[in-house]
Simulated assay, not measured.
Amino acid sequence: MTLDELPQGRMARLAAIDWSALVPEEAERLRALGFDTGAEVRLAYRGVLFGRDPLAIEIGRMTVALRRVHARAMHVEQPAESATA
């Protein structure tokens, strides 16, 4: 699933990022903010108007506003639910 499809409030790990889908300057800025394979992220908020932009993504101790087009270039994996006995 891509980051824009992640349910609000759920944690996930960035599994792959299609850097070629982004403008080079934007890709560089996102890398500087910590968006890279293996980073843990959480979708904190989804916009309510039109294309539901922007998305508020928590990464580390920051909250970053992303456009959906950027989030679509990022594939995430959700951690497996822990089994309860």
Rank of each mutant, 00 (worst) to 15 (best):
L43T: 05
T37W: 07
A15H: 08
P54D: 06
A71L: 15
E40I: 06
L33C: 01
M1Q: 09
G47R: 10
W19Y: 15
M62I: 00
G47S: 14
V76P: 01
P7I: 02
H70M: 14
T37L: 04
P79V: 13
E26I: 15
T37M: 15
A16C: 10
R42N: 01
P7K: 01
G34Q: 01
P24H: 14
G60I: 11
L22A: 11
V69S: 14
W19T: 15
R31W: 10
L30M: 13
L33W: 03
H75R: 10
R42G: 00
M11D: 07
A16I: 00
E5K: 13
V48P: 08
R13A: 10
L33H: 02
G34W: 00
G38Y: 08
E77M: 12
A21R: 15
P54T: 02
M1P: 01
G38S: 11
T2V: 12
I57M: 08
V69K: 09
T84H: 02
L43M: 09
M62N: 04
R67Y: 09
A16F: 15
I17E: 12
I57Y: 00
W19C: 14
D4E: 06
L30C: 11
L55E: 07
A73K: 03
D53F: 05
A83E: 04
L14Y: 07
I57A: 04
L43D: 06
V48W: 02
S20D: 13
T37G: 06
V23T: 13
P79K: 14
G38C: 07
L43K: 12
H75Y: 14
I17T: 15
M74G: 05
R29L: 10
G51D: 08
W19G: 15
D18K: 05
A16K: 15
M1G: 06
F50D: 13
V41N: 09
L6W: 03
E25I: 03
V76R: 08
R13G: 02
V48E: 04
E77P: 03
P54G: 12
A56K: 11
V23D: 12
Y45W: 13
R68A: 07
R46A: 05
S20N: 12
E81N: 12
L3W: 05
V41R: 10
G51M: 08
T37N: 07
M11W: 03
A73P: 04
T84A: 14
R52P: 02
E77I: 13
A85K: 13
H75F: 12
G9Y: 03
D18M: 00
R61H: 09
Q8P: 01
A44H: 01
T63L: 00
Y45N: 04
G51V: 05
F35M: 08
I57G: 00
A21P: 03
S20H: 13
E40C: 11
I59P: 01
E5S: 05
R61A: 06
R46E: 14
R61S: 04
T2K: 14
L6S: 09
W19A: 12
V69F: 05
E25Q: 09
P79E: 06
G60F: 03
R68M: 10
M74P: 04
V48G: 10
H70N: 08
E58G: 03
T63N: 00
I59G: 03
I57R: 01
V23L: 13
R29Q: 06
S82N: 05
L55D: 05
R42H: 01
G34S: 12
R61N: 06
G51N: 13
A12M: 02
A56C: 06
A39D: 00
A85Q: 10
A39M: 02
